[in-house]
Amino acid sequence: MAPLDGIAMPSPSSPLLPDERLAAGAARLATRYTGRFGPETVLGLIADSYARLAEHAWIRTHLVVPAERLTAERLDALAHAQALTDGPTSCAVRVQPERGPLPDGRRPPGPPGGPYIGQALTEAGVDLADAYPKPLTEEVVQAADIVITMGCGDACPVVSGCRYLDWPVADPDGAPIAVVRGIRDAIDARTTEFLTQLAP
């Protein structure tokens, strides 16, 4: 397997993992993807996933599990993009990593969505139990046929062959709950209309 673009592959003599607890997850993923991706690819991706999550995190204590989950999603997307597995046509949505509270319990200034985004989604019946903030990675974009951004600009990966749509959506940062609900409903309406257009 050739090295992934932008991902540093490890050498046996250099420490790669920024947190030694990632080794167990890397071993699980290497076993899960045996025959499709080598251990070096898995190690490189899990280290990169951790670094991307840590870049926007105020507290890094609990990033090991999300890093493993993000790595699995990236490997699945990479396998799909390389036609190693069959999968449905997919859409990619960028999710801005949200910063958690500061050690003293205060929220940091300007966390995406403010304190109401989770409340607004729960009110709409969205199950957030397995949700976690994550960046949009190159592998996910490569596996997608359609990429929908919401004011992403140059921060999102661009891959030739993908269809790109940008939905201008108000920024929920610091907005009161009523405004956040309105943003949620606007996204829901756009999504419903878009799915109707895609339906055969």
Rank of each mutant, 00 (worst) to 15 (best):
Gly35Val: 03
Ile117Gln: 01
Pro15Asn: 09
Asp5Glu: 13
His80Asn: 00
Ala8Lys: 11
Tyr33Pro: 00
Glu193Gly: 02
Gln96Trp: 00
Pro108Trp: 10
Leu84Tyr: 01
Asp5Gln: 11
Trp167Leu: 08
Gly118Gln: 09
Gly153Pro: 06
Asp127Phe: 06
Glu20Pro: 00
Thr196Cys: 01
Ser49Arg: 03
Thr192Phe: 01
Ala124Arg: 15
Ser13Gln: 13
Ser13Asn: 09
Ala155Thr: 11
Asp173Tyr: 00
Arg52Ile: 07
Ala175Glu: 14
Pro172Met: 07
Thr71Leu: 08
Phe194Met: 13
Ala23Gln: 13
Thr89Asn: 04
Pro172Val: 07
Val140His: 02
Val141Phe: 12
Pro112Phe: 15
Asp86Asn: 10
Val64Tyr: 05
Val65Ile: 12
Pro135Glu: 12
Pro168Cys: 08
Pro15Ala: 14
Leu17Asn: 07
Ala24Thr: 11
Gly25Ile: 04
Ala2Thr: 13
Ala144Gly: 06
Arg69Ala: 15
Cys91His: 04
Ala189Val: 11
Val65Asn: 08
Met150Gly: 01
Ala186Asn: 10
Val147His: 03
Thr192Tyr: 00
Tyr116Lys: 00
Val158Asn: 01
Pro103His: 12
Cys156Glu: 08
Pro115His: 01
Gly87Tyr: 13
Leu102Glu: 13
Gly174Tyr: 08
Thr41Ser: 04
Pro103Gly: 09
Ala72Lys: 11
Leu17Thr: 12
Pro10His: 07
Ile183Val: 12
Ala26Thr: 05
Leu29Ser: 07
Met1His: 12
Ala143Met: 07
Ala175Cys: 09
Thr196Ile: 04
Gly118Phe: 10
Ala30Ile: 06
Ala189Arg: 14
Leu75Val: 09
Val180His: 03
Pro66His: 06
Asp171Gly: 10
Tyr116Phe: 15
Pro88Phe: 13
